[in-house]
Design a protein around this nucleic acid. Structure first.
Lengths: 168, 168
DNA sequence: CAAGGTTTTCAGAATTTTTTGAAAATTAAA
DNA sequence: TTTAATTTTCAAAAAATTCTGAAAACCTTG
């Protein structure tokens, strides 16, 4: 397979993969393109490679920057802005975990804290089932939260090494 | 807060949460409803509680069954079918991990295996960047795959205990 | 096997999400 | 400051996804 075709396939599949994880297809594709591009690209480069509009590139690039996955870089002598993706995939994963934890897991845990204190007779079947579900999710959620915190701080080699040891 | 309101909030937030993870809002809401319902519910119960159509309930319930998160149960003396969700949240998580691994991670790894063998001069910058990205993702992906396999087999208490030990 | 209850299907409608593209804003050079 | 290149914005259009509801299929029972 030629590079061009392989690249197409990679980008297209990364996009489809993204949609299964609540990530906009184009954003994932732009990310894929930047991941395999050794040099920084401009908005025009991305427009051309993916055949999408300027506005679309602009919005999704901004989003990727918000997620901390892509940086704006200045190329001396060039007027245009260039964009470069973090290439270390372990750093990428840690960054995504960090963001999703903050955006989703933490607010969910706050909600569950509130919902656990529902009024009513804890002996009543429906109240009991509700509280039990909330407590169960909260417990696992808190555990995940702690574990992910540690993971975010961890070095790849250390982390994998440690996992290998437990999961022999 | 009264049970009814708490339940509403839980269902609505679980639905929103789902959409961030590529899960259809209604499917997540039905799951939430079943999670907090001590007794099995019928399609009609779900239609009424969530105010959605029969077809919608039917399709999403089927999907939840495919995911292994909900079971059909027979209630003696009743003609209608009843649905019951797995309540043990650790089992739920393991089941979701198992399914997503099979549906998403494994196919992605297969693709990467294929793409790694791209033709062309490995010294050329663009080929090099592509292959490096693919290899990097594959390496981490394989590691994740193994780790998740072990997790799927693990007991909750053992798993959490072991994690606590490493991540002191 | 007829009747009535229940579940499933799926084409079209409704809704939500994404994309476009042109105008406005911003920035850097002249 | 003016001009021109570049980026950003966002209303409207397009596309994708989800939902409805009625008809068909499927049971179960008498």
């Amino acid at each position: 397979m030629k590079l061009l075709e392989a690249k197409q396939q990679f980008i297209s599949n990364w996009g489809a993969f993204g949609t299964h994880w609540g990530i906009n297809r184009t954003m994932a594709q732009i990310h894929a393109l930047l991941l395999v591009s050794p040099d920084p690209l401009t908005q025009d480069d991305i427009m051309e490679e993916l055949d999408i509009s300027r506005g679309n590139v602009n919005m999704n690039i901004r989003e990727l920057i918000n997620w901390g996955l892509v940086d704006r870089v200045v190329v001396t002598g060039e007027r245009k802005e260039f964009f470069l993706a973090e290439k270390d995939i372990w750093k990428v994963v840690k960054q995504i975990v960090k963001e999703r934890k903050k955006r989703e897991l933490e607010p969910m845990l706050q909600l569950l804290d509130k919902l656990e204190n529902v009024e009513g007779d804890k002996k009543e079947k429906n109240v009991r089932a509700f509280v039990d579900a909330v407590i169960g999710i909260k417990k696992l959620g808190r555990q995940a939260d702690k574990t992910l915190d540690t993971m975010i701080k961890a070095e790849e080699s250390w982390f994998i090494g440690a996992l290998m040891k437990i999961f022999k």
